[in-house]
Amino acid sequence: MSSTELFENARGFIYSNARLLDRQRFAYWFEGGSKGSVLEALAAYQNEDGGFGHALEPDIRCPQSQPVPTEQALIIIDELEAYDTELMSGIIRYLKSITLSEGGLPLAFRSLMAYPHAPWWITERDDMPNLNPTGHILGLLMKQPRWAEWSQEEWIQRNLRFVWQAMEKPEPEEYHEGVQWVSILEHAPVTPQTSQAVEKLDGWLAKKGVIERDPYAEGYVQKILDWVASPDSYAAKFVTTEELDLHLDAMIKQQLADGGWPISFPAASPLGELEWRGSLTVDRLKTLRAFGKL
Rank of each mutant, 00 (worst) to 15 (best):
residue 140 L to V: 04
residue 250 A to K: 02
residue 118 A to P: 06
residue 261 W to D: 06
residue 21 L to H: 09
residue 182 V to S: 06
residue 78 D to S: 15
residue 185 L to D: 11
residue 220 Y to W: 03
residue 62 C to Q: 02
residue 21 L to W: 06
residue 113 M to A: 11
residue 207 K to P: 04
residue 21 L to C: 13
residue 14 I to F: 08
residue 113 M to R: 06
residue 247 H to L: 08
residue 192 P to F: 00
residue 150 W to R: 07
residue 234 Y to L: 09
residue 165 Q to A: 14
residue 7 F to V: 06
residue 225 L to M: 11
residue 159 N to L: 07
residue 242 E to T: 02
residue 152 Q to H: 04
residue 51 G to H: 01
residue 276 W to A: 02
residue 64 Q to D: 11
residue 96 K to C: 12
residue 153 E to H: 08
residue 133 P to K: 06
residue 30 F to E: 02
residue 102 E to T: 03
residue 2 S to Y: 06
residue 206 A to L: 10
residue 100 L to P: 03
residue 7 F to N: 08
residue 161 R to V: 08
residue 236 A to H: 10
residue 250 A to N: 01
residue 37 S to D: 15
residue 191 T to H: 10
residue 81 E to L: 07
residue 75 I to D: 15
residue 201 L to S: 11
residue 180 Q to M: 10
residue 66 Q to G: 09
residue 223 K to C: 09
residue 42 L to K: 09
residue 227 W to Q: 04
residue 72 Q to L: 15
residue 258 D to P: 04
residue 254 Q to D: 15
residue 121 W to R: 06
residue 9 N to Y: 00
residue 124 E to T: 14
residue 148 A to P: 00
residue 264 S to H: 11
residue 141 L to D: 03
residue 253 K to F: 01
residue 262 P to R: 12
residue 267 A to V: 00
residue 245 D to C: 10
residue 104 G to R: 02
residue 220 Y to Q: 14
residue 66 Q to I: 01
residue 184 I to W: 03
residue 119 P to L: 04
residue 254 Q to M: 15
residue 110 R to Q: 12
residue 113 M to F: 10
residue 17 N to D: 14
residue 272 G to E: 02
residue 49 D to K: 00
residue 159 N to P: 05
residue 113 M to H: 07
residue 205 L to K: 03
residue 115 Y to H: 14
residue 254 Q to H: 10
residue 15 Y to H: 15
residue 188 A to E: 09
residue 86 E to R: 12
residue 145 P to K: 12
residue 237 K to F: 07
residue 104 G to D: 08
residue 24 Q to L: 12
residue 281 T to C: 05
residue 172 P to K: 00
residue 11 R to Y: 05
residue 149 E to K: 00
residue 267 A to Q: 05
residue 231 P to I: 02
